[in-house]
Amino acid sequence: MEVQEIVTGGTLHGLVSIGELSRLTGVAVRTIRFYCDSGIVESTRTTGGHRMFDKGTAVDRLLLVRRLRALGVGLVAIAAVLTGEQSMAEALAAERAAVDVELGALAWRRASLRAIENATPAERATRLELLAEVSDGGSAHDSVVTFWRRILTPMPSDMFEDFRSMNVPDPLRDPTPEQVVGYAELVALVAEPRFAAVVSQQLWRPGPTPIRDKVGLLSGVAEACGMAESQIHEGRAPCSGRALDRFVDAHATARGERDTPGFRERLRVGLHDNDPRTQRYWRLTSEITGATITVGAGQLWLYNALDRSTGGPVSR
């Protein structure tokens, strides 16, 4: 049996009292009683009501429990290992994952304290208010993911996961003070009541013709952003070309229309792409992740190209 082999590699024999069991294992008598009441260790009673234990089984179990408890493994997990409901490897992996979460929260807290400590007097009150709303990197990440799930409601899970991996910063293992401030600002942005409406306007381009195929639109826009990536990376000015054509075609097809000069003009009306909040969101995302190009940068470049192609002013 896995449990026995880990502890002793063999079996002892006979019955022992609770005091003798305590001496053999180094586990306090009161703790052994608690383990008995919890079902961790089995015992029998003498006619006088004293607990007696099978020496081999009880010693093996108590030594295993003591060693796992020393590593911080909880009694529920230990009980599952002893009954065979969970393997030793599974229990240890779960405990390690929990430790990773705790370490991440501590790293976030340390960086937050440094961010406030190192702030100028003028910055300190703002940073304190901002960081007090975000307890750790995991909750910050969840807030941003939840925001995008609402915006991208029809997107299939695999497409959403691709979007999330590229455009939502992962929880930071060892963040810098600047990164926690930036992430906390992202959380504050997505919490603004009007921000979701601005982002939806930028993404869906609502107009006189309703969108019939949102998933197809998202896929087409993503493809257009990918086609424009090299031009953005090279610092080229927004211009007409295959990327813009694919972008407009995605919007037209999703509405059951054709790419015409009139459609392009309607598509550019009421742009929110230069809203400072959306630009700030994508700038912060780029700074946190280290990515040089984001979906936001791609969309902005394409909308600027659309402005130029329809004779409008090029956004800056």
Rank of each mutant, 00 (worst) to 15 (best):
G138N: 09
R316E: 14
A297N: 13
I116S: 04
E85Q: 13
A237L: 13
F163W: 15
I40S: 04
V295F: 15
R69T: 14
E85P: 01
L130K: 12
L302H: 09
V41A: 06
T209L: 02
S315A: 10
P261W: 10
R316I: 12
V215Q: 14
I288V: 15
A196N: 03
R61M: 06
L63F: 05
E85N: 11
S17V: 04
A93L: 10
T25C: 02
S43L: 04
V199Y: 09
L172D: 06
G48V: 08
P276T: 10
S309P: 03
V145K: 11
E229A: 14
G262A: 06
P154F: 01
L82T: 09
V314N: 00
S286W: 09
Q231G: 05
L267N: 05
A291R: 15
L21Q: 12
E2I: 09
R194Q: 14
G312I: 02
A250V: 06
G9W: 03
R268P: 06
L284G: 14
P276I: 12
M52S: 01
R246L: 08
L271F: 02
R109G: 03
S135F: 01
V248K: 02
V76Y: 01
V198G: 02
D60N: 15
G10Q: 12
V3P: 09
A222G: 14
V16M: 04
S309M: 10
V198M: 13
M1G: 14
G9S: 07
P206G: 12
E102D: 04
E223Y: 06
R246G: 07
M1I: 03
G74N: 15
G207N: 11
P276K: 08
L172Y: 04
